[in-house]
């Protein structure tokens, strides 16, 4: 049984009298230890898929099962606990708290855990060491470059040692060299056993991923295996499959 399983997930946004079908009857499994990339044009439902998968957004229909837990059968507070235990989120615009220092930002998910303050500090330092930012622990986010800020965000996502890391366009705001470094960091985490799911626009980012999932208008367009090595190839294959 896959670690993450989506069963006939449908998501309809109701805004006024408009109904947007963001996800159409989508079923999908992601295995423990997989590195999965979700691609697709803007508005195709990538972010929606990630937030449904991450227990942040209740699907209109269908189930999301993670490690045997039916995520949306949990009440809203238990679902928060679930996110804390199972998931680390990384966002395109880093989403650091500007008035907290780097180490405080990293410690944030631990605030609502029973760990003692000293222990939290130790865990945060350890994870900052891993992303190479230990020396900047006492700086504010503004004093760091974009790539560094994203590394802080990754550290924050990891401080709880969650089995799953979800990243929505983690390199969207970064130049290509920095993007490369971030992707390497994510691969390193994947190698350490974290299951990683990223949403990305950038074909460069899907080198070395285990699987690439393409979305179009809220539907799974194609799932491509290990053979995918470049954006162009992926598009070419897409064309082929469509025919």
């Amino acid at each position: 049984m896959p670690l993450i399983q989506l069963e006939n997930v449908q998501k309809i946004y109701n805004t006024g009298n408009e109904h947007v079908h963001a996800l159409h009857d989508l079923s999908l499994g992601i295995d423990q230890g997989e590195f999965v990339a979700i691609m697709g044009p803007s508005g195709s439902g990538k972010s929606t898929l990630l937030s449904v998968l991450g227990g942040l957004s209740q699907p209109t229909n269908g189930r999301v099962i993670v490690d045997g837990i039916d995520v949306y059968a949990l009440d809203v507070e238990k679902r928060a606990d679930f996110r804390r235990e199972y998931l680390g989120f990384v966002f395109q615009s880093f989403q650091l708290i500007p008035y907290l220092t780097i180490i405080e930002n990293v410690m944030l998910p631990l605030v609502v855990t029973p760990f003692a303050r000293v222990e939290r500090g130790r865990m945060a330092i350890e994870i900052l060491e891993k992303v190479g930012l230990r020396s900047k622990a006492l700086r504010l986010p503004d004093e760091l470059s974009g790539g560094e800020q994203q590394r802080v965000a990754i550290a924050r996502a990891l401080v709880n040692q969650p089995p799953i890391v979800l990243a929505d366009e983690p390199t969207g705001n970064l130049d290509s060299a920095t993007s490369e470094a971030i992707m390497q960091l994510l691969h390193k985490l994947n190698a350490e056993g974290h299951t990683v799911v990223i949403v990305t626009h950038n074909p460069e980012n899907i080198h070395d991923v285990d699987r690439c999932i393409h979305l179009r208008d809220g539907k799974l367009f194609v799932e491509k295996g290990l053979a995918v090595h470049s954006g162009e190839m992926a598009s070419a294959e897409l064309e082929k499959e469509r025919l």
Partner: peptide, 16 residues
Amino acid sequence: TREIGIFRAIGFRQVH
């Protein structure tokens, strides 16, 4: 709002 969204995403409960 954004900050509260971050807190919720990283596992803060509503009561928190």
